[in-house]
Every structure is written in C-alpha cells, then in structure tokens.
Deep mutational scan, measured.
Amino acid sequence: ATNIVGKVKWYNSTKNAGFIEQDNGGKDVFVHKSAVDAAGLHSLEEGQDVIFDLEEKQGKAYAVNLRIK
C-alpha cells in the first residue's frame, strides 16, 4: 500500500524504532531508523503527521518512503 496517512504513536531514538498509527484505523505500523534516515530526518516526534508506504517482510508490516505531511 502507498501514501498511507498516519501519526507517530511513539518513536524511541535510543532503540531506533517506533510505531505509526494509521489514520484509516489499520494496525499500527513499525518504523525503523533506516526509514527515518532515508527521509533525511533525525528523529520523529509523537503526534507528528506522516505519509508512508507499507512494505511487508517476513509477514510484518514496515513503514518505508516516509515523509512529513
């Protein structure tokens, strides 16, 4: 899926990971530091509006192509 709108639920820069809550009510999506880095960002803030694509690896959904809304 592409161009999904959501809000950062939480992001821990020590653990280099967090979750994004989908505005469409879907399951929360894992976001890794690699996606944050690829977006040219240093970190994510709780409640921040984002747009992202979903990629599945080994049955788990990940946020990729992250951008700030």
Rank of each mutant, 00 (worst) to 15 (best):
A39Q: 03
A17Y: 15
K69N: 11
N12H: 08
Q48V: 09
K9S: 03
K60Q: 09
K27P: 15
N65H: 08
D28A: 08
G25I: 06
Q58A: 13
K60S: 06
I20W: 00
I4W: 06
A17C: 15
N12R: 08
V64S: 06
W10Y: 08
G6I: 02
A61W: 14
V5P: 13
K60R: 13
I51W: 08
F52I: 03
A61E: 12
K9G: 02
V29P: 01
G6N: 01
V31F: 12
F52Y: 06
N12F: 06
K7I: 07
A63E: 02
V8K: 00
N16P: 03
L41W: 11
G26C: 09
N12K: 08
H42S: 13
E21V: 13
Y11F: 09
S43H: 12
V5Q: 14
Q22G: 07
W10Q: 04
V31E: 00
R67I: 07
S34L: 09
L44M: 05
N16F: 09
V36N: 01
E21S: 15
Y11C: 04
F19I: 12
F52R: 00
G25S: 07
W10N: 04
V8H: 00
W10K: 04
F30N: 03
E56L: 13
R67P: 02
K69D: 09
V50Q: 00
G40L: 06
A17N: 09
A38M: 09
T2S: 10
Q58V: 08
D53H: 03
D28E: 08
H32K: 08
N65L: 02
V50I: 13
A1L: 13
D53C: 03
A61G: 09
S13N: 11
G59A: 04
E55Y: 14
N12D: 13
Q48A: 09
T2P: 05
Q58D: 15
V29F: 05
N12L: 08
D37W: 14
G47M: 04
F19Y: 12
T2W: 11
K9V: 05
A63W: 01
I20G: 00
N16W: 09
N12A: 07
H32G: 11
Q22P: 15
A35M: 06
L54E: 02
S13R: 13
I51C: 08
S43E: 10
A17L: 14
G26H: 09
E45F: 15
N3A: 08
I4M: 11
E45N: 11
Y11N: 02
E55T: 09
V36F: 05
E45C: 14
V31W: 02
F30E: 06
W10A: 04
L44C: 02
G40Y: 05
L41Q: 05
H42Y: 12
S43L: 10
Q58R: 13
G6R: 00
N65F: 03
A38S: 08
V31Y: 03
E45Y: 15
I68R: 05
F19H: 04
V50R: 00
E46C: 13
A39N: 03
D49H: 15
F30L: 06
F52C: 00
V36G: 01
A61D: 08
N24Y: 08
V8I: 09
G6A: 02
D49I: 15
D37Y: 14
I68V: 13
N24I: 08
V5D: 08
A61P: 08
H32F: 07
V50M: 06
G25Q: 06
I20K: 00
N16R: 15
K9A: 04
G25W: 06
K33R: 11
T14M: 13
T14N: 12
G25Y: 07
K60W: 11
S43F: 13
K33N: 05
K15G: 06
A38Y: 06
E45T: 14
L41D: 02
K57N: 10
H42G: 12
L41Y: 09
R67S: 04
G18W: 10
I4E: 03
K7F: 06
I68T: 09
E56C: 14
V5R: 15
E21C: 14
Q58P: 06
A63G: 04
D23Y: 15
A61L: 14
A17V: 14
L41I: 09
A17P: 01
D28H: 09
E21Y: 11
V50L: 11
G47C: 08
A61C: 13
E56S: 10
I4L: 15
N65M: 02
K33S: 09
K9F: 03
N65K: 06
K33P: 06
Y62H: 10
H32E: 09
E56N: 10
A63H: 02
K33C: 08
G47K: 05
K69L: 14
G59D: 08
G18S: 01
E21M: 14
N3I: 03
F52Q: 00
Y62C: 10
G25P: 06
Q58T: 08
Y11P: 02
Y62P: 03
G59W: 03
V64H: 05
E55L: 13
G6F: 01
E45G: 08
N16M: 13
N16G: 15
K57H: 11
N16L: 09
H32T: 10
K57L: 09
E46L: 12
D49K: 15
G40Q: 07
Q58G: 14
A61M: 13
A1S: 12
K15L: 15
E56R: 12
I68L: 13
V8R: 00
I20T: 00
K15R: 12
G40T: 03
D53W: 04
I51S: 04
F19T: 06
G26Y: 08
K57D: 08
D53N: 05
A1Q: 13
L41C: 06
D37S: 12
G25A: 06
D28G: 09
I51N: 03
H42T: 13
L66P: 01
I20R: 01
L44H: 01
E46V: 15
G40C: 09
K69F: 13
V64G: 03
G18M: 05
L66M: 03
I68E: 04
I20F: 04
A38L: 09
Q58I: 07
G18D: 01
N65E: 03
K9I: 06
Q48M: 13
N24A: 10
G6V: 02
S43C: 13
V8W: 06
V50D: 00
E55K: 11
A39R: 02
Y11H: 03
G26D: 09
A38W: 06
G26R: 09
S13M: 11
G6E: 00
I20L: 10
A63T: 02
V64L: 04
F30T: 03
L41T: 03
I68Y: 06
I51V: 11
V36E: 00
N3S: 08
F52H: 00
I4D: 01
V5G: 11
K27H: 10
D23L: 15
V64C: 05
L44V: 03
A38N: 07
A61V: 15
G47D: 04
D53G: 02
G59T: 04
K60D: 06
T2N: 10
N24S: 10
K60E: 07
E56T: 13
S13L: 10
K15V: 11
F52M: 02
N3V: 04
T14H: 13
D53Y: 02
Y62I: 08
V36Y: 02
E46T: 15
E46W: 12
V29L: 03
A1H: 13
A39P: 01
N65S: 03
S43A: 11
S43I: 11
S13F: 10
A63R: 00
D53Q: 04
D37L: 15
N12Y: 06
S13C: 15
A1N: 13
